[in-house]
Amino acid sequence: MFAPVRRKTDALSATRRTLVRLTPLALLVLAGCAGRDDLYVLLPGKDGKTGALVVNSDGQQRVLDQPYAAARVKGAGSVAGRTSTEAEVRQTFGPALAAQPSRPVSFFLYFLADTDEFTPESKQLVDRIFAEIARRPAPEIVIIGHTDRVGAVPYNDALSLKRAERVRDELLKLGIPKVRISVAGRGEREPEVATADEVPEPRNRRVEISVR
């Protein structure tokens, strides 16, 4: 039983040996010696927003908050800022970026006030959901219920979960493929439309079906 595993890991055992050798080196680096070739790059977000990355090496800190802002670390405490480029990113990180999973996609169903009843139009949506599932490797579905802000937080947590479970049961009846399904209730925490408390808002009474 062990032999086939060995054969498969041949390519990796070199990595492992390297690691064993690297461990004392890493300790030396942390103790303040130079000798790293680290590069950290912030990318422009696909959703149009660029976040921020805080690089901290032995007390030296650098905040990356512009597209392609980058930091080099050559040893603990040695953080140098620079700007990377699309070409450098492709060259250095091509395989890691190519292995990035597909981004999750969300579909929304809407509900009548204070109920778990949804409209028949949703049936068309189901076909699109099924198509999305079919095109993904190891697909999963996460069904997330949301409410408006009428009612107390614990009540809405329970109602949102009930809505999510209702949608799960409906999808099952419609013959959803056998995939991993989980349900969650977000209550009133994530409104689509921001409102004051106790304001009825149909657009917030929804269930999100996230396929990933």
Partner: peptide, 9 residues
């Protein structure tokens, strides 16, 4: 990590 996309080598 304060959000979104980044790379590490």
């Amino acid at each position: 990590v304060r959000g979104t996309e980044f790379l590490v080598r």
